[in-house]
Computed example of a mutant assay.
Amino acid sequence: MDHQIILNKVVQSGLVPLFTHHDLELAKSVLDAAYDSGVRVFEYTNRHSNAFEVFKSLKIYADKYPDLMLGIGTIFEVSDAQRFHNAGADFIISPAMIGEVAEFCQSRGIFYVPGCATVTEVYQGKKMGSSLIKIFPGNVLGPAFVKAVLSVIPDIKLMATGGVEPNEDNLRTWFNAGIHCVGMGSQLFDLKSLERGDFSGLKSHIEKSLTIIQNLKK
């Protein structure tokens, strides 16, 4: 898929939900609720022993949403990048700046988002072809780091992930700092509620977060 299309969709949305679960049916219900709430970019994270099997089936299930981009996160190895790409991942995200994965993705034309915690890493990521960089861990680095990065690399787009909270005060500090989007996982998904089947509660929660973000981006 064209990188600019992916980048535009991520920035336009302002929110990338990060979700993982070993149960495929639960993951399908979460994806449905997220889509119904307005999400068009979704990251499934590679953190369970059966993550590949779940993702592969989830990607086929997501075919009913032609405007949804479903990518894979927590990728450390080229071998994992290869197999998830083969399974149809629209983009690949890492928690770190991993040169081999960046090189692989660049050689295959894959949209790659590395996780960076220093100006050096952000610069390396940009140099290796990434148009979107994940600031991680966000709660450790903080919005001031975003401002510092953009003061010296103003033409890069940044996504904050890790400890970003779905409330107006927290989100305002990030977007005021110049962030283009945020990734939210545990702050967005209450696993106990989901395992009880409260998907309408999740839909409402995501809708509120999206509304806050869209208002902050005006």
Rank of each mutant, 00 (worst) to 15 (best):
M1T: 10
M1K: 11
M1Q: 11
M1A: 11
Q4C: 09
I6K: 10
K9Y: 02
V10Y: 08
V11W: 05
V11I: 15
V11S: 07
G14Q: 08
G14M: 09
G14V: 10
L15V: 07
L15E: 06
V16I: 15
V16R: 04
P17K: 08
T20S: 15
H21C: 09
H22S: 15
D23E: 14
L24T: 13
V30P: 11
L31N: 06
L31A: 06
L31K: 10
A34M: 08
A34L: 11
F42P: 05
E43F: 01
T45A: 04
N46V: 01
S49E: 14
F52A: 04
E53I: 09
E53V: 09
E53A: 14
V54D: 07
F55C: 03
K56S: 13
L58N: 09
K59I: 10
A62D: 08
Y65N: 04
P66K: 00
L70Y: 03
G71R: 05
G71E: 06
I72F: 06
I72C: 05
T74Y: 08
F76M: 15
E77L: 15
E77I: 05
S79C: 11
S79M: 12
S79I: 12
D80R: 01
Q82C: 13
Q82F: 13
R83Y: 11
F84K: 04
H85G: 14
N86H: 14
N86T: 14
D90Q: 05
D90L: 00
F91H: 00
F91P: 00
I92M: 02
I92A: 01
I92P: 01
I93F: 05
P95Q: 12
A96L: 15
A96T: 14
M97P: 11
I98R: 13
V101W: 06
E103N: 15
F104S: 00
F104T: 01
C105A: 04
S107W: 02
R108D: 05
I110F: 01
F111D: 00
Y112I: 00
V113Q: 06
C116G: 12
T120W: 03
T120N: 11
E121K: 03
E121L: 04
V122H: 00
Y123E: 09
K127A: 15
G129A: 02
I135K: 03
P143G: 10
P143L: 10
A144C: 12
K147H: 12
A148V: 13
V149L: 06
V149D: 06
S151E: 13
V152Y: 02
P154Y: 03
D155H: 07
D155F: 06
K157V: 02
L158P: 07
L158F: 01
M159R: 04
A160Y: 02
V164P: 03
N167W: 01
E168R: 12
N170Y: 01
L171C: 07
R172C: 07
T173N: 10
W174Q: 08
F175V: 08
N176M: 13
N176G: 10
N176L: 13
H180C: 07
C181E: 06
Q187K: 15
D190V: 05
K192P: 08
S193L: 15
R196F: 11
D198T: 06
D198S: 06
F199M: 04
S200N: 14
L202N: 09
L202W: 10
L202P: 09
S204N: 13
H205F: 14
I206C: 08
K208M: 05
I212S: 03
I213N: 00
L216F: 12
K218D: 08
